[in-house]
Write a protein that binds this DNA or RNA. Structure first.
Length: 921
RNA sequence: AGGCGCGUAGCUCAGUUGGUUAGAGCGCAUCCUUGACAUGGAUGAGGUCGGUGGUUCGAAUCCACUCGUGCCUACCA
């Protein structure tokens, strides 16, 4: 093995073998375990959020596979309708064309071409992450089977009246020319204005002042509303005003919706361009006057002067004209929420159009019940509140999109405008007995991508056909996802699953945090702070990173700032850390928090951890290869350290398993790190040296230690494998035979399970004594700046029988680890030379100071310790002399405190005596 | 406006049902090329757990209030 860990060589070797051997495929058995990958955009690329999420899912998958479950991690991607269409449209624009130049068929073909071309990017990247997805069952939302499922669901829901078509006010994206759902609209506070405008009464007697943030919609006003009990306007209710700039009169109505305190207390009502106004309009039977075209320009039904102006220009013009007429009272600065399309970024316009909707309430009720009853559990639990919150007030879901890339809506129209829904045109004709002569045309619209994603847990398993996969894997075990798509996806899957499978789609929902940059900022291309997981794995030069972050920006002027920030944060670029370090880092960040700050220091530390494992292995191999590791029936003698590390291993196993079961990958990673580095490497490997190198060790002892070295390492590899698949496989291949393990891959080995009988309290107590002994000496060394190379003479005083016994058993180990030249006990009544002191229980460990240690330094050191003990003693004495504590606290707690007090007292006494002694010299 | 979350060492975070001397990693300081590893080893410094009040023998942990901060949902034109 090489001296340093080089991830790249290792990682390139294993993945293709695993895949080729079919290790990722379910291998039968009774207890099924299944996770559906949240389908990424087929033409997208892997970002940190994916990498994090996929690490968790892969870890779970590998863990359960090793536990012997029939494990499936379903692979696949979605077609990301709007996003993908936009990309291809942009390509066309670059050629000076639009999709309309190509026509629908040609354009869709072009998107398929693009999908073929770029569709492998993300799956290749997923493979780099080591994900054990079953690629043999990879699905795509637009492939035949899934399209069939979409079709089936649409038709069924329509038959039941749960899908309907209607002219309704929807969120319209004037740039993309499509309706979008509520969820695809991002409302943010922006600085705007409030215009106060005069509307003269029709009889000329007076006027009203209305306040609005959208003066251009004045053209579509249907009425002016005031609060029914607003005394200022009582007399005007029922009268009419003349709508400025239009040749119309509109009524003044009373409606509770109006807040008399806000603005002027008079609201212009534009039912065709505002959701609230729409409701008011309905209540009062007001006409819907549409002002805009699909581009959000003023349409041809409006006064000629404004026709063709876009929203912003129209606003300017109208304000100007009002001002000219003396009808503009004032303009105030005003903060308001502006709705923008999450894809296009333009302001969303409420627009009256024909759309298809899913009636959500009837589907939501059982979905709420499924969580309430505990059939589905959120982890962490609190997320159920968010879910209920939204579900209880769910709105109908607009599912039609005016784009070309997606599942075409299976609805046909005849020339009279009748609608026929069915699986195909032929099906529609047959069902409705329509003559061939009747011309039918299919609905031009496609379905929201989330509509097909909602079916993912069963469509990928073959639904609507009855398949063995559905029987085996539905409901799936757990959904792993971010809280940002609870509404988009999670809720909808639950609704659809219950409706069509009559069962929940998953039993648990593990909600993880969102990956942010080291400053806590959300990573985004426009901010230029994205990290590409592949760059962390392979490394990237500074220049390449800058280039990557500044290329293809929406706002090219950001480039300079992004470059500056990037050069500041990554002066050396990014070194290669390898997949395992990245995965381990993600695991260690997976606590319960919502935000996950990704800091390069963490991944560096974990790369070092991989290196540590690598080098520990080298040591183990050096001592076991070609040696007897006790694979035969020869006797082994297990030393104290052997027993100790095996005992600690059992506890680590228990802790790792319980952490994974709770989705606490951070705790699992921590236990593993702690065990491997701080116990196995720092102590056990060091303790094995004296045994293996000592000529006096028996063959049985050496065999026992070699066996323990290799077996513990082998078990740790299996424990680690779900988190770090590559390095563990690489090492396992080399060491497994020495541990007596057979098999072609660590992937399919059994996950370790703790064996209670191997936990030894005695061994742990004995080892604790050794460690205290060694650390006591090291402490003196460290604080007195005695070089580690300098062997020390050690004298013991106040040695108990147990101390004596332990010393006899483990003296050589101690002398090796603490670098002592001799350890002698003081004979009864014998005087020790002036010494520095450490305590192991009541036993004094004395290091003669002569020529090594300065008297004042030792005094200072003792004073510090004594002060610490005094504080503790004071605290304990106070506590124990409080009768309330002694009476009311549980007996065990009191006893524990008394014990602590005794310890502190005797320690204090020992050190004080020692101090006096030295001070008197 | 409602809902959810966060505030613990210089930084990033753990802290299980209230009972430790409040932990880890990184960073920092001192020492160390001992044959697994300088991507390393040894030792150390550093925290009145945002604040106030309460419950309790005992609070980082439970309750109330408060300050700061973040997110989500719904919104007043």
């Amino acid at each position: 093995m090489d001296k340093t860990y080089a991830p790249h060589d290792i990682e390139s070797r294993w993945y293709s073998q695993w895949e080729k051997q079919g290790y990722f495929e379910p291998k039968g058995g009774d207890s099924a375990y299944c996770i559906m990958i949240p389908p990424p955009n087929v033409t997208g690329s892997l970002h940190m959020g994916h990498a994090f999420q996929d690490t968790i899912m892969d870890s779970l998958t590998r863990y359960h596979r090793m536990k012997g479950h029939n494990t499936l991690w379903q692979a696949g991607s979605d077609h990301a309708g709007i996003a993908t269409q936009m990309v291809v449209e942009r390509q066309l624009n670059a050629e000076g064309k639009t999709r309309h130049d190509l026509g629908r068929e040609e354009f869709v073909k072009r998107i398929w071409d693009w999908k073929e071309l770029s569709g492998n990017t993300i799956t290749k990247q997923l493979r780099r992450m080591g994900t054990s997805l079953d690629w043999s069952r990879e699905r795509f939302t637009m492939d035949e089977g899934l399209s069939k499922a979409v079709n089936e669901v649409f038709v069924k829901l329509h038959e039941e009246g749960l899908i309907y078509r209607g002219k309704r006010l929807v969120n319209w994206d004037p740039k993309l020319h499509t309706a979008v759902s509520d969820l695809e609209v991002i409302s943010e506070e922006e600085q705007g204005h409030m215009w106060h405008m005069r509307y003269p009464l029709a009889d000329g007697s007076s006027e009203l002042v209305v306040a609005t943030t959208r003066p251009e919609t004045l053209l579509g006003d249907a009425c002016v509303a005031v609060h029914p009990s607003d005394e200022r306007y009582q007399h005007l209710i029922g009268q009419r005003v003349t709508l400025p700039l239009c040749d119309r009169e509109i009524p003044i109505i009373a409606d509770e919706y109006v807040d008399p305190e806000f603005g002027t207390g008079c609201v212009k009502i534009t039912p065709a361009h505002d959701f609230n106004d729409y409701e008011v309009g309905l209540r009062h039977n007001m006409p819907l006057i549409n002002v805009f075209t699909v581009d959000a320009r003023i349409n041809d039904d409006m006064p000629e002067k404004y026709q063709g102006l876009d929203r912003a220009k129209a606003r300017k013009q109208i304000v100007q004209d009002l001002d000219d007429l003396g009808l503009l009272v004032k303009v105030e600065d005003h903060k308001l929420m502006i709705p923008r399309g999450d894809r296009s970024g333009v302001i969303i316009e409420p627009l009256l159009t024909d759309q298809w909707f899913v009636k959500a309430k009837p589907l939501a009720e059982p979905a709420i019940e499924a969580v309430k009853s505990g059939k589905i559990k959120f982890v962490p639990e609190n997320w159920d509140k968010t879910y209920y919150n939204w579900m209880n007030d769910i709105q109908d879901w607009c599912i039609s999109r005016q784009i070309w890339w997606g599942h075409r809506i299976p609805a046909w129209y005849d020339e009279a405008g009748n609608i026929y829904v069915g699986h195909s045109e032929a099906d529609v004709r047959e069902k409705n007995q329509l003559p061939d002569s009747l011309a039918l045309s299919q609905d031009e619209d496609v379905l929201d991508t989330w509509f097909s994603s909602a079916l993912w847990p069963f469509s990928t398993l073959g639904w609507p056909d009855k398949t063995p996969e559905l029987d085996t894997f539905y409901p799936t075990s757990v959904l792993v996802t971010g809280f940002d798509i609870i509404f988009f996806w999670v809720a909808r899957m639950i609704m659809m699953g219950l409706k069509f499978m009559d069962d929940v789609p998953f039993k648990e929902i593990y909600i993880h945090g969102l990956v942010r940059d080291a400053e806590g900022q959300k990573m985004s291309k426009s901010k230029g702070n994205v990290l590409d997981p592949i760059d962390l794995i392979d490394g990237i030069s500074l220049d390449d990173l800058v280039e990557k972050r500044t290329k293809g920006l929406m706002q090219p002027k950001m480039a300079a700032k992004i470059e500056k920030d990037t050069r500041k944060h990554f002066p050396e670029g990014i070194p290669s850390y390898g997949t395992d370090a990245l995965r381990f880092t993600f695991a260690s960040l997976a606590s319960t928090g919502r935000d996950i700050r990704f800091d390069l220091n963490r991944i560096e530390g974990n790369r070092n951890f991989c290196n540590k494992l690598w080098n520990a292995t080298r040591y183990v191999l050096m001592n076991t290869e070609g040696e007897d590791t006790g694979l035969g029936n020869e006797d082994c003698t297990y030393s104290l350290p052997d027993q100790w590390i095996v005992s600690r291993l059992q506890q680590t196993e228990a802790s790792v398993i319980s952490s994974i079961e709770k989705y606490r990958f951070d705790l699992a990673a921590h236990s593993l790190y702690e065990f491997l580095w701080n116990e196995y490497c720092d102590w056990y490997l060091e303790l094995s040296k004296p045994i293996l190198l000592d000529e006096n060790s028996s063959e049985e002892q050496k065999r026992g230690t070699r066996q323990t070295l290799i077996r513990v390492l082998e078990a740790v590899l299996r424990l680690l494998h779900p988190l770090m698949p590559f390095i563990t496989e690489e090492i396992w291949q080399q060491i497994a035979p020495l541990a007596g393990k057979t098999g072609n891959t660590i992937m399919l080995q059994a996950y370790p399970t703790p064996d209670e009988s191997k936990i030894s309290a005695d061994a742990e107590a004995d080892m604790a004594w050794i460690m205290e002994f060694v650390m006591g000496i090291r402490k003196i060394r460290g604080e007195m700046n005695i070089p580690p190379s300098k062997p020390l003479t050690v004298i013991l005083d106040n040695v108990s029988e147990l101390d004596q016994k332990r010393l006899e058993n483990s003296g050589t180990l101690i002398s090796k680890l603490a670098r002592t030249s001799s350890i002698d006990s003081l004979a009864n009544g014998e005087q020790a030379p002036e010494s520095a002191t450490a305590l192991v229980g009541d036993m004094k460990v004395l290091i003669p100071m002569a020529g090594l240690i300065n008297k004042d330094e030792e005094l200072a050191r003792l004073d510090k310790e004594i002060a610490k003990l005094n504080n503790e003693l004071k605290r304990l004495t106070g506590k124990l002399s409080n009768p309330k504590f002694v009476d009311k606290a549980p007996k065990e707690v009191v006893e524990k405190e008394q014990e602590k007090k005794q310890h502190a007292e005797s320690k204090l006494q020992n050190l004080s005596l020692q101090r006096e002694k030295i001070a008197s010299l």
